[in-house]
Design a protein around this nucleic acid. Sequence first.
DNA 1: GTCTATAGCGCGATAGAC
DNA 2: GTCTATCGCGCTATAGAC
Lengths: 206, 206
Amino acid sequence: MTKRTIGAKRRLNETRILEAAERVFAERGYSAASTAAIAAMAGLPKANLHYYFRTKQALYRRVIENIIAKWVETSDPIRTDADPKAALSSYIAGKIDYSRLHPHASKVFASEILHGAPTISERLSGDLKIWLDGKCRVIEGWIAAGKMARVDPRHLFFIIWAATQTYADFDVQAAALLGQRNLRAGDYQAAREMVTAMVLAACGLA
Amino acid sequence: MTKRTIGAKRRLNETRILEAAERVFAERGYSAASTAAIAAMAGLPKANLHYYFRTKQALYRRVIENIIAKWVETSDPIRTDADPKAALSSYIAGKIDYSRLHPHASKVFASEILHGAPTISERLSGDLKIWLDGKCRVIEGWIAAGKMARVDPRHLFFIIWAATQTYADFDVQAAALLGQRNLRAGDYQAAREMVTAMVLAACGLA
DNA sequence: GTCTATAGCGCGATAGAC
DNA sequence: GTCTATCGCGCTATAGAC
């Protein structure tokens, strides 16, 4: 065994544990998620999980950090040099895609915030606020340039997040009320079209 | 002690327990909420709580049932004989008020759905689906009468719920990103105005 | 109806052999 | 690195005195 092989195995096991943890945390919530269940889903004995991640809290923190990183990435289309209508449409489409493709990640994040954000409250009022401030300045720049109607950029983001993430976080409710077992591709498409129409109209871009 | 007095005491204690439970379930989630914490917040010994509600699950079910009843009530403005613009505006305003005044209730419901709705899945695909079907027929009636633009009524509801309830469920996030400790009256007003503008525009009622 | 004390159990975490 | 066995804690729920 070379050092490189050992490192590869560590990375492989860590990845499997992180994926299993994201799923179990999403389905049960932090407290009800047992390390035994996560280990079983990752195909490892429970003691091995504690070898790679000393505590449940440390494992959870790693899961959350990964999710935040992806969450921030989805806002890449919001750039000063972009066209507001195209940028907002692309942003919404990306958020809906994320809800469809990564519902577990969205749910873990939602559960964290829902119960007071104990793990990431410093980040919310720290680097994530700074990140959002920057994105809001982009919107304000578009408004100042007369490219779109005057709206409160922060509430615009809050409402876009809510309207897109609800199709991941509350997929069970939406499916049940649609008389289905799961959400289908057409449901996400209808959601994307409706959210886009509402946002563009509110921004005077329809 | 007359029988009436005893019944009054039972109702008083049950109410105090239910209010405490709603709060603790909202703050910690079902699993992390201990019956000891609920009893302490209600000002009772733990054993007394189990005297009034035999199991934690039974107490939780009662909390959820009460929340659903209030949730259904908020849709009262959606009536066939109402004016679409006034009805939707009133509905959204009521939902925002509910988020401001009953954030705990909204969070308990959100947490229930988020983790797969184990307690109310039958209701979601049963009487709640029938209730929503009725409300959707009202919207479809308005569309058929040419009173508003053609939209998918179910997705319209999903998005209104998401955009209004996010100010209760994710209040911690919104406050932190606004650089505040809590949401203020003005924040809810801004939210109401923005959601209303978006919905009315999407429905051709602006 | 109220309260103290505790039974019973599941979970996080670790020791220690391999 | 891996795994079995187990410790210790905190929780739900109840027994039984008052």
